[in-house]
Lab assay of single mutants.
Amino acid sequence: KELVLALYDYQEKSPREVTMKKGDILTLLNSTNKDWWKVEVNGRQGAVPAAYVKKL
């Protein structure tokens, strides 16, 4: 499985998103959308802005 690093804090704004903190390591589930990537963090799945994460 592919991992990404959170470059910034992000507070979810809808139920389809997830909150992450700078430095979090997230499991990347889907990166086909260039703006929003689906990730899993702390057992929750949701979208985060692609510009806020970097593939490891």
Rank of each mutant, 00 (worst) to 15 (best):
K1E: 11
K1H: 13
K1R: 14
K1C: 15
K1G: 11
E2H: 12
E2G: 11
E2N: 12
E2R: 12
E2V: 14
E2I: 14
E2Y: 11
L3E: 08
L3V: 09
L3Y: 15
L3K: 11
L3H: 10
L3M: 11
V4G: 14
V4P: 00
V4W: 08
V4Q: 01
V4C: 14
L5H: 04
L5E: 12
L5P: 00
L5M: 14
L5A: 06
A6I: 03
A6E: 01
A6T: 03
A6L: 04
A6G: 04
A6W: 02
A6C: 13
L7W: 04
L7V: 08
L7F: 03
L7M: 10
L7C: 12
L7T: 04
L7I: 10
L7G: 01
Y8A: 12
Y8I: 10
Y8E: 11
Y8W: 10
Y8V: 13
D9T: 05
D9F: 04
D9G: 05
D9N: 08
D9I: 02
D9M: 03
D9V: 02
Y10Q: 01
Y10K: 00
Y10D: 01
Y10G: 01
Y10C: 00
Y10F: 07
Q11D: 14
Q11C: 12
E12V: 07
E12P: 14
E12A: 15
E12D: 05
E12W: 06
E12G: 15
K13L: 09
K13M: 12
K13Y: 06
K13V: 09
K13H: 09
K13Q: 14
S14M: 06
S14T: 12
S14C: 10
S14W: 06
P15T: 10
P15Q: 10
P15A: 12
R16G: 15
R16L: 15
R16N: 15
E17Y: 07
E17D: 05
E17N: 05
E17S: 07
E17M: 06
E17G: 14
E17W: 04
E17T: 08
V18L: 13
V18W: 07
V18N: 04
T19W: 04
T19K: 03
T19Q: 05
T19R: 06
T19S: 15
M20S: 00
M20P: 00
M20N: 00
M20E: 00
M20Y: 01
M20D: 00
K21L: 08
K21R: 13
K21M: 09
K21V: 09
K21W: 08
K21C: 10
K22Y: 05
K22G: 05
K22Q: 10
K22P: 03
K22I: 06
K22S: 08
K22A: 13
G23V: 00
G23T: 01
G23C: 09
D24H: 04
D24W: 11
D24E: 11
I25E: 03
I25S: 02
I25C: 08
I25H: 05
I25Y: 06
I25K: 05
L26Q: 01
L26Y: 10
L26A: 09
L26W: 02
L26G: 09
T27D: 06
T27F: 12
T27W: 13
T27K: 11
T27G: 06
L28F: 03
L28R: 00
L28E: 01
L28P: 00
L28K: 00
L28A: 02
L29K: 05
L29R: 04
L29D: 02
N30P: 04
N30C: 14
N30S: 13
N30V: 09
S31F: 07
S31H: 09
S31Q: 12
S31C: 13
S31K: 09
S31V: 08
S31M: 11
T32C: 13
T32Y: 10
T32K: 10
T32V: 10
T32D: 15
N33A: 09
N33I: 06
N33Q: 10
N33F: 07
N33Y: 07
N33T: 08
N33P: 06
K34P: 14
D35P: 02
D35H: 14
D35N: 12
D35S: 10
D35V: 13
W36V: 04
W36Q: 03
W36H: 03
W36F: 08
W36A: 03
W36P: 01
W37Q: 01
W37Y: 09
W37S: 03
W37E: 02
K38R: 13
K38W: 15
K38Y: 15
K38E: 15
K38F: 15
V39R: 00
V39S: 00
E40N: 04
E40M: 08
E40L: 08
E40W: 06
V41G: 08
V41L: 15
V41D: 03
V41T: 11
V41H: 14
N42K: 10
N42A: 11
N42W: 06
N42V: 05
N42H: 11
G43P: 01
G43Y: 03
G43K: 05
G43D: 06
G43V: 02
G43W: 03
G43I: 02
G43E: 06
R44E: 06
R44F: 07
R44S: 06
R44N: 06
R44A: 07
Q45K: 10
Q45W: 07
Q45E: 12
G46N: 01
G46Y: 09
G46T: 04
A47G: 08
A47C: 15
A47Q: 14
A47H: 15
V48A: 03
V48E: 01
P49W: 03
P49G: 02
P49R: 04
P49M: 03
P49Q: 02
A50S: 13
A50C: 08
A50L: 02
A50P: 09
A50Y: 02
A51T: 10
A51M: 11
A51D: 14
A51K: 14
A51R: 14
A51P: 07
Y52C: 15
Y52R: 08
Y52S: 14
V53T: 03
V53E: 03
V53C: 14
V53F: 05
K54C: 15
K54M: 14
K54I: 14
L56M: 10
L56P: 03
L56Q: 05
